[in-house]
Nucleic acid binder design. Structure first.
Length: 471
DNA sequence: TTTTGAGTTGTTCGA
DNA sequence: GTCGAACAACTCAAA
């Protein structure tokens, strides 16, 4: 019999390893919650909730045959082989540094036991080792990575169908019930998050179809407007592999090409770029990619970090974003940039604290995308924004949430403020505040930093960094 | 090796 | 209100 080890590929359609296992013969499908090898990259709270429902859905697709385990993957796989007559094991590749290390070790161990091991690519359009510059080194700038590296490489494979026949066998080794994995929190905050989503494979396909039929129509501009449904919202499904980038890529290529579709395709390529960075620079989640930023005077902890996390900074667009994150496990991309810039450049807090908070709160938390994006906004990453690019939360709010629909949705205590003052309530005349039942410092906080002075502080710190002698 | 052109997402200031 | 320049050079990629 053949082990099909599900990991970040929780789907039955377009699953190369599952296809291989089905061809090989009888399948023993398993999932292992491996916290013991993840160390500081252990899955966050929101991701665990998503995973819980994704596993339930996958198990249904496999007619209840998915065996669940938790613990060290190598030990569990060895036991599985000892308890069953295993001839081969199939899985799809993961790219987090700890998983690469672990899987390499497991592959060797199983091979030594006489088990045939085969891994496939199910989650990237191009393998990170495949897209390199002519001199064999990895790209550090997105545009040439995508245009020359990706688009001139071999086209991504076309999606595979669900295996038309899957034969399952009895697993002789006892496994866990889904509830016993302990993925759901003790305090039931998960209900409010998960009600915003259909975290199934079908939900992924529905989201893709809805997006490609509706949201894409005005994607290029609309994707910046957090009140609009112009973004794909596919990120959690892509992270857990409930849909593959190949399915999305080919569905998008099947349509008449225009600049909206091209913009969306390049967003899929940003995901690839993040994975390439993580693969070639495995220190990405923990170290500044540009070493000189090690001397940047970023701070750690304190009241301001807490205010940011709780959505109580006194800047409405920031607070709306942070509350969207807390309530739904998601934040619109434009707002992620605004809150990120604010944390790093106005509060002067280290980007790793933002990364850690997102990691815990996002249902789409992804080591590659999360760390590459935080380094980008902090200015210390690959292809990073110039240091003088500091987002102004008032202007950004006025520009991208003109009608205030998004901000009022998540900061309802300001819903009666007129548009003119919605993004800067501290400038509103007393009678306007009274009329809107807003009492600054009571019903809504005063700004925790001054935009002008904090901006100047950040610019000065960046400038000092530049002028310092290299160590 | 040297040269050349280009680089996701912004803000402010002054004309 | 609108528009262009300044912000600061630097690194990357490719010819």
């Amino acid at each position: 019999m053949n082990i099909m080890w599900f990991r970040q590929d929780l789907r039955v359609k377009d699953n190369p390893a599952l296809v291989e296992a089905a061809i090989a013969g009888e399948i023993l499908p398993i999932y292992i919650l491996d916290d013991s090898n993840a160390n500081e990259d252990k899955m966050g709270g929101a991701s665990r909730v998503w995973l819980h429902y994704a596993l339930a859905d996958l198990n249904r697709s496999l007619q209840g045959n998915l065996s669940l385990y938790k613990g060290d993957a190598k030990a569990i796989l060895k036991q599985l082989c000892d308890n069953n007559d295993i001839t081969s094991a199939y899985w799809n590749r993961c790219y987090e540094p700890w998983r690469i290390r672990r899987d390499k070790d497991i592959k060797q161990t199983l091979s030594e036991k006489g088990v045939l091991v085969k891994s496939s690519n199910a989650s990237l359009l191009w393998e990170p080792w495949q897209v390199l510059k002519k001199d064999g080194t990895p790209y550090k700038v997105f545009t040439p990575f995508y245009r020359r590296g990706c688009l001139s490489a071999e086209a991504p494979r076309t999606p595979l169908a669900k295996p038309n026949k899957m034969t399952f066998v009895d697993n002789k080794m006892p496994s866990y019930k889904l509830e016993e994995l302990g993925l759901l929190p003790h305090i039931p905050w998960d209900k409010t998050v998960i009600q915003h989503w259909d975290s199934s494979e079908k939900g992924a396909e529905d989201a893709m179809v809805t997006f490609l039929e509706q949201g894409i129509r005005n994607y290029k501009e609309g994707r910046n407007l957090p009140a609009k449904a112009n973004t794909s919202r596919l990120s959690p499904y892509l992270h857990f592999g409930q849909i593959s980038p190949n399915q999305v890529w080919h569905q998008s290529l099947n349509r008449e090409q225009n600049h909206h579709l091209e913009t969306f395709q390049s967003e899929l390529a940003w995901r690839e770029f993040s994975y390439s960075l993580l693969y070639h620079f495995p220190q990405l989640p923990r170290q500044n990619l540009q070493g000189k930023f090690d001397r940047f005077p970023w701070q750690w902890g304190g009241d301001k970090l807490q205010a940011w996390q709780q959505g109580k900074t006194g800047y409405p667009i920031i607070d709306a974003g942070m509350r969207e994150l807390w309530q739904t496990g998601f934040m619109h991309n434009r707002v992620r940039m605004i809150v990120g810039s604010f944390l790093v450049k106005n509060l002067l807090l280290h980007w790793q604290q933002g990364e850690a908070w997102f990691w815990d709160c996002l249902v789409d938390a992804d080591l590659a995308s999360n760390s590459a994006s935080w380094q980008w906004i902090a200015g210390c990453g690959a292809d990073a924004a110039p240091y003088f690019r500091v987002f102004n939360p008032v202007i950004q709010g006025e520009k991208f949430d003109k009608t205030g629909e998004y901000t009022r949705r998540f900061v309802p205590e300001l819903k009666d403020l007129p548009d003119k003052y919605l993004f800067k309530p501290w400038e509103a005349p007393t009678e306007v505040l009274q009329q809107a039942s807003v009492e600054l410092g009571k019903t809504y906080p005063m700004p925790i930093v001054d935009l002008k002075t904090s901006r100047e502080q950040a610019l000065a710190a960046f400038k000092a960094l530049k002028n310092e002698e290299p160590t």
